[in-house]
Amino acid sequence: MASIARSLRPAASRFVASSSRRAPSWRISPFQVRSFSASGAAQAKKYTKDHEWIELSEDKKTGYIGISEYAAHALGDVVYVELPTTPMEVKAGDAIGAVESVKSASDINSPISGTIVAVNELLEERPGTINKGPEDESSAGGWVAKVEVDETGVKDLDDLMDAAAYKEFTAEE
């Protein structure tokens, strides 16, 4: 039952800790907002077999996590997104939340090791945003979490698929 308790943790402490998430430290300032077209400086996006994506910043210190276009389409209308509390240390494959549609809740896993430092609060009020732009990391997009990455996390990227490999992977499903 340990794993149940562990995966319940984000939800159970979510309400208590939600105020800390509103800490100004990560508030998106106009300078930080990156539009899709300007994201060329970022590292190449990588995908997991469980349909999460991660895209690291140029300095490889932070990254955005979300679910793929393919997954969002397969799930259909998302009615609820469970977000992690921050900060939260995670290993690759750890559950960091869940996305719920048609009475099914699917876990969202962290693609790499790191520390979740921010979440996309927009998804709490408007979970459908994840359908509109699941791979959009702008302030109006459907990204899920922002992660701080260390060396292990950067190394974890090697185990993930690039866009071409992921496309091939989903074509087989």
Partner: peptide, 9 residues
């Protein structure tokens, strides 16, 4: 009634 959980499919 119906309710499902999926973890890594």
């Amino acid at each position: 009634a119906l309710g499902v959980h999926l973890r890594r499919s």
